[in-house]
Each structure stands twice: as structure tokens, then as C-alpha cells.
Amino acid sequence: MGAGVTQNSGGGGKRRRRSRGRSRAMSEINVTPFVDVMMVLLIIFMVAAPLMTVGVPVELPKTAANSLPSEQEEPLTITITAEGVVSIQTTEVPREDLIGRLRAIAAERESNRIFLRADGAVPYADVVQVMGALNRGGFENIGLVTDVGGPALDAPAN
């Protein structure tokens, strides 16, 4: 890749004295460092690209999913029993009072994360209505709690 150094003897009968260390400048660009840097950047982007995807964590009842990481604050949990009774932590709350109590709780908390536990027998419409109340109450980060260790979706049913 390097350019050769040429020296002209000058052909005129007079001998030119050669200077030591003087040669013509190399006129080619050495691209080897550029290729090395590009290969390193390519590897970094190949490793980092899968980590940059954003997903929506959704957990369904009876899955083999991992648990969510713990927080500094005690997690707030809403529970819907099979009978349709809604509870904040362990206190039963009438559905018409749910939004007002959630707004009061949201004003005191730093985190807007809340966990929703619903019995498998509760109709989907009831769960969605409570999720809407949670959203109107100031909680936008809703985690659905499941029974970890149940059958996975791809497992054959017995």
C-alpha cells in the first residue's frame, strides 16, 4: 500500500548530491485504521441494537414469567375478587369511590406504578373498567400480577 520512493539521477553529466532523509511525500491514504474503527463500530451497533428495542411488559394469568423488579416504595396493589369486590391493598373500596381514593393516594406517592390482581373468573370487561379507573386516578404504569409457575402458552393442555 505504501508508495515507493523514486529518485531522479538527473541525466545531465553532473552528479547531484543526494540528501539524506529527503524523499517524496507519500500520496496514498492509509485506510487500515479507518477500516479498524468501522469494524469496532459495527460490532458495537450489532450488540447494542437488540437492547434498544422497547417492549410493553404484559403478563397474563398462569404464566411462567419472571417477577418485576422491586421498588423503593411499598408497591400499591388493587385486587378484584371472583365476586367482583375491589380492594386497595387489604381495604375494600366501593367502585364509585375508587377514583377519588386513587387520586388521593397518587398525590402522596412518588411512583405512578400500581399492580392489579384479578381472579381468573372475573370478566374481562370488569378488569378493563378497573384499569380505566386506575388511569383516571393518576396511575399510568399498571402491572398485571399473575400466578408464576403456571403452564406456558406453548405447553400442551391436559
Rank of each mutant, 00 (worst) to 15 (best):
R113C: 03
R101A: 06
A133N: 15
E96Q: 08
V122K: 05
I105F: 07
G100Y: 10
P123I: 01
L102F: 09
N141H: 12
T91W: 01
G120D: 09
T91C: 00
A125S: 13
A133D: 15
N141M: 07
A121V: 01
G100H: 06
R95E: 11
E110P: 01
N135T: 12
I142C: 05
V122I: 09
I114W: 03
V128K: 14
G132F: 02
S111T: 14
T90I: 06
L144P: 00
D97A: 05
E96H: 08
N135G: 10
Q129S: 13
V130M: 10
V128N: 12
E140P: 02
G137F: 06
S111M: 05
A121L: 12
R101Q: 15
A133R: 10
M131C: 10
G143H: 04
G100W: 03
A133L: 11
G137D: 02
D119S: 15
V128L: 14
R117W: 10
A107H: 13
R95D: 08
G100L: 11
R113M: 08
Q129L: 12
A107R: 13
A104M: 10
V128Y: 14
G137H: 07
L116T: 05
D97T: 09
V128M: 14
D97F: 06
G138I: 06
E92Q: 09
D97M: 08
G138V: 04
R109S: 09
R101G: 00
I105E: 08
S111C: 04
E92C: 00
E92N: 11
G120S: 03
I105W: 04
F115M: 08
Q129Y: 11
I142A: 02
A106G: 05
G138F: 04
D119A: 14
R113A: 12
T90H: 12
G143L: 08
V122N: 09
A107D: 14
V122F: 09
R117M: 04
R103K: 15
T90Y: 10
N112R: 14
T91E: 13
L134E: 05
F115D: 02
A104V: 07
L144C: 02
V127L: 08
F139D: 02
E110Q: 13
R117H: 06
L144E: 01
D119E: 08
E108P: 03
E108F: 04
Q129H: 11
A121G: 10
L98P: 02
F139C: 01
P94R: 00
N135K: 14
L102I: 03
V128E: 14
Y124N: 10
G137L: 04
I99T: 15
A133I: 01
E110T: 14
M131W: 05
R95N: 08
T90G: 09
A125P: 06
I142L: 10
V122S: 04
P94L: 00
Y124W: 13
P94K: 04
D97W: 03
P123C: 00
A133K: 13
I105R: 01
Y124H: 13
I142Y: 03
P123R: 10
T91V: 02
N135P: 05
E140N: 14
V122Y: 07
N135H: 15
V93H: 06
P123H: 08
S111N: 11
A107N: 13
T90N: 15
E92I: 00
Y124R: 14
L144N: 06
